[in-house]
Design a protein around this nucleic acid. Structure first.
Length: 842
DNA sequence: AGCACGCCGACT
DNA sequence: GTCGGCGTGCTC
């Protein structure tokens, strides 16, 4: 190939051709914080390319070269034709994203105020966001202009007739310099070359001189060849031009054992019953032409024996199966242990039998192995998983596996909601109340809400499952927008746990436990039962203070106390990770009388040993389970009955069952109850019910004792006496009275800077500008105010709360406002972002 | 977001 | 005299 360098053919972009049947202008989304699409001319070496939206294009952008996504083709541009640049290369033979995917992502980008190009690129696995590995990008250094005007072909090297061509097509994109139309030969040269030649020739390429101008390789991605998936255009062979129209030999998703090796063990698996994927086109759009479902059939299930549905489950399964092929959201409102997963499995079996695909979203990585194991043991499906713990290569392969239509079930966390699934027929969002379904930075989308929108676009049912649904979802179910399915009974003989409030005012606490709770623990331990204690505070003590002068150990970067940890022995900020050695004397007055206030799980664990010397305890929090495999070891010990007391933070509340536990003690949730966030009570109730759900699954009924200093709190009363649904009804009434979601819709404009006044000034200006917009008529703006925990990692945060009764009106306002804010001059170091449907108020 | 251009301070 | 601070403006 290097030999061919001597004939590199370089063409400068042509001016408007005189004889064109129809001008092709490509509208490209660019991954930059810019809302608009950018117009480009097609590359010269792709005369008969099909310009399907969703293709990844390599484009010159400013002085950079970026990977953009084709969004449309038009004959007219608002920009002078002569100033349009050419696309450098088309990276896919067939778009990675279908029209439906583009529609979904574009909707999400608009709804969540994210620039389209950034939203699109974030929908791809990281490896596909980058220039392919066997793609060399050469930068041509500055030199004298080789041409002024005209559209004749220009030899690359000035004055010489030396032409250089890469064996599979080279191209160069000189660009106008200074915007005045004079071309320099500075720019990028992109070339692809085949695998075998990659390593051998690249170094030589970087030294090649062409006349007076040398080309050097700006970037070569050295990747082991056997790991590098072949871009489609190389499948045709070594000398084939990369972008020829005939793509028959270069479909990116064709079944090819050599290019799609078996997946890594433990991340996904092939089923021996895998269907022949060739009978499906991965790119057919929509499900309207899909084969009809056999109603009531159970093909696809491989082990039904022993799994008998109760009547509630049967009603749920029947209702969902009847809705296949149409958009219908379901709320599967089922208490812990009521068999929600079994309902999923029955409906999934139907999907698999019909040769369709299903998407299952779970909030956390930790929940994927459990669900994966259950699905795999029950369903003869090709299952693939997607979450952040996978290596980039595995992520790409699994993504392709789903996007090609070869996988019938995709099980994944949040980001899986954007993965193309050509035969999608069902979406499940498990634990729909979980906060981690909403991304908390950058593109702040809610995977649950995007899922509903996706089901609507596709025309398929969606199941939102939870034992503690969000008030938003419950409200939708109440209004009949979601079909409400109830699973009120626990499987088997298990009884639901009882919850009692324990007033701890004026009680002498030891290890954070009131005398009554200590008695009850002793009672259960004596009976050979297990006890679970919940404390949502890790570390030894949350505050260290000086008894002589009142000094309190705070974080130098945050408005937060440092937490004392004894193992390892550090003084730690839980917000920014700052640590310092534990002081032995007061840094302020040198007194040695430092005292700990409050207690975390570490301290309670220590105190439990003196309180219950005969009992073994296990502490489960993010500190004790930091080592790989440690969580599994502790959970296993708990489930075997090797420990009598389980102590932990909310890690305990997620997904794991402890059949031997008969008593749950919740030590202190008062802080959550009275937090500033209007969702705090809802969170607390969900946590209580989820923790309670860990207990008493066997024939022994579980009890929950909730220690509080506010036993009269109306929401606690509702929860204890009327259960979660009673709590939800009361909480919804409160939301209605205070005009909070779901009765209004919110957006939060957040701003932060190192300077304390800068964010507030910006927000004041933003509020002033908002008032000028006609769309602000039905908008209420509260603030600006410093955010809770205003100073974090040395930056001051403030926010402005936008409230509106109508989602549509809020959207219209945000669109106008966002455009306006982009133009506001930005003070030094200011960052701002809009959070639509914020989940946390800081 | 990058990246370049452009006009004012401390130094090879 | 230059290197470099980040303000401003643009990217098809």
């Amino acid at each position: 190939m290097i030999e061919n360098l001597s004939s590199l053919e370089v063409q400068r972009p042509a001016a408007a051709p005189e004889f064109v049947e129809a001008m092709v202008i490509l509208q490209v989304a660019i991954p930059a914080p810019l809302a608009t699409l950018f117009d480009y001319l097609p590359p010269l070496n792709a005369p008969s390319q099909q310009w399907t939206p969703g293709l990844r294009l390599l484009v010159p952008f400013g002085r950079r070269q970026l990977l953009g996504i084709l969004m449309g083709v038009t004959a007219h541009s608002d920009h002078a034709l002569a100033r349009l640049k050419r696309v450098d290369a088309v990276l896919d033979a067939v778009p990675l994203l279908t029209a439906l995917d583009l529609k979904l992502i574009a909707w999400a980008a608009g709804y969540y105020q994210q620039p389209l190009g950034e939203a699109l690129i974030s929908a791809l696995p990281t490896r596909l966001r980058k220039i392919p590995l066997n793609f060399a990008v050469a930068r041509i250094p500055p030199g004298p202009p080789f041409s002024k005007g005209g559209d004749e072909e220009v030899p690359f090297s000035k004055g010489g007739d030396e032409k250089v061509t890469f064996s599979n097509g080279g191209f160069c994109s000189p660009f106008s310099k200074g915007g005045r139309g004079d071309f320099s030969n500075e720019g990028f040269l992109a070339a692809s070359f085949s695998k075998g030649e990659h390593a051998a020739n690249a170094p030589a390429l970087s030294e090649k001189k062409l006349g007076k101008t040398s080309i050097f390789i700006k970037e070569i991605n050295h990747a082991p060849f056997d790991q590098s998936p072949q871009p489609p255009f190389f499948k045709g062979g070594l000398d084939a031009p990369p972008f020829e129209k005939d793509a028959s030999s270069s479909l990116p998703f064709e079944k090819d054992a050599s290019s799609s090796p078996p997946f890594e063990k433990g991340t996904s698996s092939y089923s021996p019953f895998e269907k022949d994927a060739s009978s499906y086109s991965p790119f057919e759009k929509g499900t309207s032409s899909s084969p009809p479902f056999e109603k009531g059939g159970s093909g696809g299930i491989c082990a039904t024996g022993g799994f008998i549905l109760n009547s509630d489950q049967q009603i749920a399964v029947t209702a969902i199966q009847a809705a296949l092929g149409t958009f219908q959201p379901f709320l599967l409102d089922g208490v812990t242990g009521s068999g929600k997963t079994e309902v999923y499995i029955r409906v999934l079996a139907q999907i698999i039998a019909a040769g369709q695909q299903a998407l299952v979203i779970v909030p956390e990585i930790g929940l994927t192995p459990q669900l994966q194991a259950r699905f795999s043991s029950r369903l003869s499906a090709t299952l693939t998983v997607l979450h952040s713990a996978l290596t980039p290569l595995t992520r790409e392969r699994n993504w392709q596996h789903a996007a090609s239509g070869n996988a019938s079930i995709l099980l994944g966390t949040r980001s899986a909601i954007f993965v193309p699934l050509p035969r999608l027929a069902l979406i499940v969002v498990d634990e729909e109340h979980d906060q981690s379904l909403k991304q908390q930075d950058g593109f702040r989308y809610s995977a649950r809400d995007v899922a509903v929108r996706r089901a609507q676009l596709v025309g398929c049912p969606i199941i939102l499952g939870s034992a503690t649904p969000t008030l938003e979802t419950l409200y939708n179910a109440q209004r009949g927008r979601y079909h409400w399915l109830h699973l009120p009974r626990r499987a088997g003989v298990a009884q639901p746990p009882t919850i009692t409030l324990l007033d701890i005012r004026n009680q002498r606490l030891r290890a954070g436990l009131s005398p009554h709770l200590r008695e009850q623990i002793a009672h259960e331990l004596a009976a050979g039962n297990q006890v679970l204690l919940f404390l949502n505070r890790r570390g030894y003590a949350p505050v260290l203070t000086c008894h002589a002068c009142g000094w309190i150990g705070g974080c130098p970067r945050c408005d937060a106390r440092l937490t004392l940890h004894l193992n390892p022995r550090r003084f730690w900020c839980h917000h920014c990770g700052f640590t310092r050695p534990v002081p032995t004397h007061c840094p302020s007055c040198k007194s040695a009388d430092l005292r700990m206030l409050g207690r975390g799980t570490e301290r309670v664990e220590e105190e439990l040993q003196t309180l219950f010397p005969d009992a073994t305890s296990a502490r489960i929090d993010s500190d004790s389970t930091r080592r790989k495999g440690e969580l599994e070891r502790l959970l296993d010990a708990a489930q075997r009955g090797a420990v009598q007391i389980l102590l932990g933070t909310q890690m305990l509340a997620k997904g794991h069952d402890f059949p031997g536990v008969t008593l749950v003690g919740i030590l202190d949730l008062d802080g959550v109850l009275y937090a500033t966030d209007f969702r705090a009570p809802e969170r607390a109730a969900q946590l209580i019910v989820q923790v309670a759900g860990r207990a008493g699954r066997a024939e022994r009924r579980g009890r929950v004792i909730l220690q509080t200093r506010h036993p009269e709190h109306p929401l606690l009363q509702a929860l204890v006496h009327k259960g979660y649904s009673g709590f939800a009804a009361a909480a919804l009434r409160e939301r209605q009275e205070t005009e909070f979601p779901p009765f209004t819709h919110l957006a939060l404009l957040r701003a932060d800077a190192t300077d304390e006044t800068v964010p507030l000034e910006f927000l004041r200006e933003a509020k002033r500008l908002a008032a000028q917009l006609p769309a602000s008529e039905h908008i209420v703006i509260l603030g600006p105010a410093p955010a809770p925990l205003a100073r974090r990692v040395g930056r001051h945060h403030a926010q402005l709360l936008v409230q509106c009764a109508e989602r549509m009106l809020l959207q219209r306002f945000l669109n106008q406002w966002g455009a306006m804010l982009q133009k506001v001059k930005r003070s030094k170091g200011l960052h701002w972002s809009v959070d639509v449907d914020p989940q946390e108020m800081f």
